[in-house]
Each structure stands twice: as structure tokens, then as C-alpha cells.
Design a protein around this nucleic acid. Structure first.
Ligand SMILES: [Zn+2]
Ligand SMILES: [Zn+2]
Ligand SMILES: [Zn+2]
Ligand SMILES: [Zn+2]
Lengths: 134, 134
DNA sequence: ATAAACCCTGAAGTTAGCTATAGGGTCAAG
DNA sequence: CTTGACCCTATAGCTAACTTCAGGGTTTAT
């Protein structure tokens, strides 16, 4: 299968596949006589692995680590994989907490504004942002 | 007050202050005979405005819009300001939801892994990422 | 008067994850 | 046998929000 076909199969742009290869996420496939990349069906595992891991918040760098564990998984333990997974769960919670804090703060600021058609000369939101005055 | 002093007062690096000026977030202050920026105490309002708005999730571009409303606030309405604020609240919720979905998905995947010291040859996490097998 | 600490500009570099461009070779159909 | 779809490489560009660098002037303290 050539790169265009693989791209269609997994819904990842051709350029992105080449980019993943350059970044060392996926192994370089064999080439045809004319230099075209020849992918096997197994190549799709790698791409769907990346898609899945990305979808739950892993960066490409982390995907590369996960993939390198995946290809040598006999030499790795479940504990190791689960650790990475639980670390990411914590990261996600930390990020959610940060967003929740921002939301709460902004909600309080926003609620103080009347939202009317009058001039914003004394708008509570602008005043809070400025720093002090009631 | 020169830029180093302002920087110390508000906790924003000197380079960042100059960057904000170049990006049109804060007005260019007057210069001394030798070309040094001379800030008044009012300049700190702008910087603390940016800090506050950034802290609740506004991008610098959005901060610039908010600041331009702030400086001409007599010609703007509370409704306008509150709209921006509520839009940002929605953005934050959307982002939180996205993170919550990732968390939920990853949690389910992670729970399926035994986390033991055995080989990861059949690790449920890796298998899920790969795409299919139980 | 000289050295440290501060200030200036403009341009380039950083991170992440692509996307686009330039310039060219290859393959399948009509 | 040529046209259009496809493939290749290398390099540059994109967004966001800075940070760093190169090269040079100023202020302040000793
Ligand atoms: Zn009002
Ligand atoms: Zn208001
Ligand atoms: Zn296990
Ligand atoms: Zn496992």
C-alpha cells in the first residue's frame, strides 16, 4: 500500500504521516524501486495507536515513548504502562482544575456586571480587571 | 519610572512589557532624553488588566480588544463587555468538557490494565491503543 | 574614570504539531 | 505518448506568547 492509500484508510493526511516518520514515531517503511514508501497493514496499527493516544491527551513525544514501549512490550511491564497512564490522568485533572478555577473566577466577575445597554464607564468587569475599585 | 522598576512592581519581565507594547496591547510611553521609556503609575493598570484577563483565559488578542474597550469605555456598553465574558465562560466549559471526555476514556482504558510487574505483552492499555483486541 | 547595572533596537529562536511550497520524478489511462 | 494523479525531498511558514541574541548606548556607584 502506498502512502495515499494508507492516508485514506486511517484518515491522516499524507504530510502528517511523513512528519510522524521524520519525528521517529513510526518506523520508516521499505521503499519500492522508484523510492515510494510501501506500507503493510501493520503500519495502520501504529497510526491508530497514535490517534488513540493523542485522543486521550498524550503529546506526540509521549506517543513516541508509548510506541517504543509497545514495540518492545515483552521487555516492559504493565506497571510501567499504567504509571504513564495514571500520570496522564493526573495531568488531565490538573488542567481541568485550572480551567474550573478560571471559570469560577470569571463567573464571579461576570455576575457583577449588569449587562445593560448603558455605558460601560463603571462596568464591574472592566473595573475588576483594572485591579481595584468597586 | 523606568521599565525595570515597572517590571519589578508588576512581576512581568521587561522583555514581555516591550513585547506587549509592540503588539499594541499597551500604549507606548513617553521617552526620556536618552530614549528610555518613562512609565507613570497608570501604566500599571494596563499591565494588571492584562494579567487579570489572561488569568481567566483570555488570549493576548482578546486582551487587546478588552483593553481597547476599556480605554474608550464611555463609548461601550456593559452588554458588550458581558457578552465577551460569557463567551469566554462557554469556551472554558467546552474545554473542560473536552478534558473530561479524555479523562473518562483514558480512565476506562487504564482500569483494564492489571498494573502488575508482569510483561506488558498483553497489556490492555497498549492493546486498546493499538485498536482492537480484547 | 571605570565597571556594574541598566536601557535600546531588530531579528532570530523556542515549543507543538502540523501545513504549504518549490522543484522534480513516476505511474496508469486514454 | 501525453496528461493528470500520485510520489519524493528539503525547506519554509503557521499560531501563541514569549525569550534570547547581537551589538551598542546610559546611569550610577565606587
Ligand atoms: Zn453595567
Ligand atoms: Zn458591566
Ligand atoms: Zn497486565
Ligand atoms: Zn497493562
Amino acid at each position: 500500500m502506498r502512502i495515499g492509500e494508507l492516508s485514506k484508510q486511517c484518515g491522516i493526511p499524507v504530510e502528517t504521516i511523513r512528519y510522524y516518520e521524520k519525528e521517529g514515531l513510526i518506523p520508516a517503511p521499505p521503499r519500492s524501486a522508484s523510492g515510494y514508501r510501501e506500507y503493510s497493514k501493520a503500519s495502520m496499527s501504529f497510526l491508530s495507536f497514535i490517534q488513540s493516544a493523542k485522543a486521550v491527551g498524550f503529546s506526540l513525544k509521549e506517543c513516541r515513548n508509548l510506541l517504543s514501549i509497545f514495540v518492545t512490550r515483552d521487555a516492559h511491564t504493565c506497571a510501567e504502562v499504567k504509571d504513564l497512564s495514571e500520570q496522564k490522568l493526573e495531568d488531565l485533572q490538573t488542567q481541568m482544575q485550572a480551567l474550573a478555577n478560571m471559570h469560577q473566577t470569571l463567573k464571579a466577575i461576570s455576575d457583577a456586571c449588569c449587562g445593560g445597554d448603558e455605558s460601560a464607564a463603571n462596568c464591574a468587569i472592566l473595573n475588576k480587571f483594572e485591579g481595584s475599585e468597586t
